[in-house]
Amino acid sequence: MTRVAVVGGAGYIGGDLIRILLGHPEVELVAATSRTLAGRRVDGAHPNLRGLTDLTFVEPDRLGRCDVLFTAVPHRESMGQLGRFAALTDLLIDLSGDFRLRDPEVFAAYYGVEHTAPGELASFTPGLPELHRKELIGADRISVPGCMATAAVLALHPAAVEGLVTGEVTVDARTGSSGSGVSAGAENLHAERSGALRVFAPHGHRHEAEIAQATGLPTRMTATGVEAVRGVQVLCRVALADGADERALRAAYRRHYADEPFVRVVAHKRGQYRYPEPKLLSGSNFCDVGFAVDPAARHALLIGALDNLVKGGGGGAVQSMNVRMGWPERTGLGFPGLHP
């Protein structure tokens, strides 16, 4: 049995990681850390896990060696502790933003600080199996992309790689309140968030750089907080290249995603759920992608949706682990979501 541990287990992504790992048949969850909740039961912070585990949180400094270590810590923390984390495990899977970008100057521009381990950026493989499955097989360090970046990259990838779009892409991202984390400030109180559509990043969101890096397309992104708790939906507006049309887009999506276990193409002519809808994906590791074409304007809207804590977080990390360890990708990730 593969021994796994979670650093930062008290947060929302840490909680979903623990939930998924407890149901994974190939692993044993041996530890979860929290500075503030050390000594307290894990199911106290995550009451949905009552009856599933007797684990208590441990201090990060008391963490022992394991086979796989997931680090779900705040941005800017992983890069300062990389040496310690790497010494504890054979496979390190980081869910922070510290090792997602390859260029330290781009990192500094988007995160507002200099990277403290720039020489290690290239040592991490992106934790997005749909684009990096071969590299993940031999990876010892994996960096899981951001939730909105994952949705946008998967929505854009088939069109970008086949040259069906041209020019700058504009990404309009919407995200639920859980994306702000368990320690979010007063602006995320229910009284402030309920009923609000808050544009919290009119420009320069850090996921913008990830999308540009992964797709090769110049990208501009806005991000809006919506009333939902879970879920991300991205609307990517693109100009169609010469010769590209709806038929070419549909064929490209089918070619790239026909055999993907967690990407579904949702672009229907009729029905209540014609396009990707995050409500249907709650708790699941699916990312639904779709498109709508305006032939007169030579533009298209490429759409992606996912659960930010699962495919955009803990589920994406476990999927990457499955690929790395040679297990079926769906292992531990079979939950299909809910309706209604």
Rank of each mutant, 00 (worst) to 15 (best):
269 K>F: 07
6 V>Q: 06
35 R>W: 04
214 A>E: 13
288 D>G: 00
161 V>F: 00
125 T>I: 15
72 A>M: 08
113 V>N: 01
182 V>N: 08
249 L>E: 00
279 K>M: 14
88 L>W: 02
339 H>C: 05
20 I>N: 03
301 L>Y: 00
226 V>F: 05
81 Q>H: 12
130 E>K: 01
247 R>W: 03
50 R>L: 13
290 G>M: 10
3 R>Q: 14
273 Y>H: 14
148 M>K: 07
326 G>P: 01
34 S>R: 00
75 H>Q: 11
233 Q>R: 15
118 P>N: 00
119 G>D: 13
52 L>N: 01
11 G>T: 11
195 G>D: 08
154 L>E: 04
11 G>W: 05
228 A>D: 14
86 A>D: 12
67 D>R: 05
287 C>K: 01
266 V>R: 09
95 L>D: 07
305 A>D: 05
256 H>E: 12
126 P>W: 06
217 L>C: 10
21 L>T: 07
138 G>R: 13
179 G>M: 14
248 A>C: 01
113 V>Q: 06
8 G>C: 08
303 I>C: 12
269 K>A: 13
203 H>T: 10
252 A>Q: 01
273 Y>E: 07
196 A>G: 01
133 R>C: 04
20 I>F: 08
214 A>Y: 15
59 E>A: 10
280 L>A: 12
226 V>Q: 07
65 R>N: 10
147 C>Y: 11
198 R>H: 11
294 D>G: 00
112 G>L: 11
122 A>C: 02
118 P>G: 02
37 L>G: 01
139 A>E: 10
185 G>T: 05
61 D>Q: 14
5 A>N: 04
45 A>I: 13
177 S>E: 00
111 Y>I: 03
38 A>T: 06
67 D>H: 09
204 G>P: 03
280 L>T: 11
311 K>D: 00
14 G>T: 03
66 C>R: 06
92 L>T: 04
143 S>W: 04
229 V>C: 05
153 V>A: 04
296 A>K: 08
171 V>S: 06
249 L>M: 00
279 K>Y: 12
29 L>H: 09
